[in-house]
Design a protein around this nucleic acid. Structure first.
Length: 329
DNA sequence: GACCCGTGCCGCCAAC
DNA sequence: CGGTTGGCGGCACGGG
């Protein structure tokens, strides 16, 4: 269920990360057949709330609005942590309002999603929601997050982490990826792609991709990989080797592999199977074809291979995913 | 699940 | 001289 979305603002909030959530969930795109969310901006503390760029906003909603939310998003906040006065001391989070932290805990208890962008993870940590959970944040804050919340399992080098029902994401643009990932998980590939298309962002970057990449947003065309990334999705059904991909990009295999990692954050093969899983996922959602047929169309040699990769990437079997998806919508 | 074989990945190094 | 390229070999992983 993903219908009711609330985003929390606190003093020092970052407009961009806040805007990402507003853009994904706060816009009526029903003319494109996309779902409309019940969207609310909630003041996490006494308003008006001052953004980090020194303007203030007034909200129409207070903390009680969080109780009905299916998703609570917490964007980045400036100066979330008080540094220790002696080196080696434990940093501690700035004092976040206890009623907000309690509301976040209640949300998790009732299995609503909580999603943070960038340093918003510190708020989740203060609520105790990161204890024992895998999580991430902007690479510049990763070390601080791990030291502030020693029980959190911080992965500094991924775009986002889903430790259901808590999703954490890295800096700025990764917040878009995390939001679209959640939409995809809850409402399917078509809805996620539809929103991505309207936002004019690449439809899918997997969470495990590295944060360090030269081009966060792949260029549309003209670029060496542009042709390839356009051509490939159409030809997923046939087997493709990395050598062939290199030839298509007019590079030697060795250089191709290196450049590919630099620019996309994944290796060619991993990226390719990711695309295949994505296509299989869409076919599972939208068709009644057999697993065998879908495996073929997505370029897996057989159903076993599909099951193998689907499990590794999505954590379920194709059949279970289809049932779950049908049941959820 | 255990296997085998082919492929992809990456560190190393030499060449440009 | 530093940076990039691309070939080679060991190794791991994926596909059957």
């Amino acid at each position: 269920m993903l219908r009711d979305v609330a985003v929390v603002v606190l003093n020092g909030f970052e407009p961009f990360e806040f805007g990402v959530v507003c853009e994904v969930f706060g816009i009526d795109r029903s003319d494109d057949g996309l779902p409309v969310y019940d969207f609310a901006v909630v003041a996490g503390e006494q308003g008006p709330i001052r953004a980090r760029n020194d303007f203030t906003i007034e909200t129409r909603h207070g903390l009680d609005r969080l109780e009905s939310a299916d998703l609570i998003a917490v964007p980045a906040i400036l100066n979330s942590v008080v540094l220790p006065d002696v080196s080696g001391g434990t940093p501690r989070a700035r004092a976040f309002p206890e009623p907000l932290l309690a509301a976040l805990r209640r949300a998790v208890d009732r299995e609503a999603r909580v999603l943070s962008v960038c340093s918003g993870a510190f708020v989740l940590g203060a609520a105790g929601l990161l204890d024992g959970r895998r999580c991430t944040t902007h690479w510049r804050h990763a070390d601080l997050l791990a030291r502030t919340y020693p029980n959190a399992k911080v992965d500094p080098d991924v775009l986002y982490v889903d430790d259901d029902p808590v999703i954490t994401s890295a800096g700025t643009a990764a917040g878009i990826d995390a939001c679209l990932y959640l939409v995809r998980k809850e409402q399917g590939t078509r809805v996620a792609n539809g929103i991505a298309r309207r936002m004019v962002v690449p439809p899918h970057r997997d969470g495990g991709q590295a944060q360090y990449i030269n081009q966060p947003v792949p260029s549309a065309s003209g670029e060496a990989f542009g042709d390839l990334l356009e051509w490939l999705p159409e030809h997923l059904e046939s087997p493709v080797t990395v050598t062939q991909m290199a030839a298509r990009a007019h590079m030697s295999p060795r250089t191709f592999a290196r450049r590919f990692v630099q620019e996309t954050g994944t290796t060619p093969q991993r990226w390719l199977t990711g695309q295949r899983v994505l296509l299989a996922q869409q076919l599972l959602e939208e068709t009644d074809e057999t697993i065998d047929a879908i495996a073929g169309k997505a370029g897996f040699g057989n159903a076993a291979a599909l099951r193998h990769h689907f499990g590794a990437w999505r954590g379920t079997t194709p059949n279970a995913y289809r049932r779950m998806f049908r049941g959820a919508s």
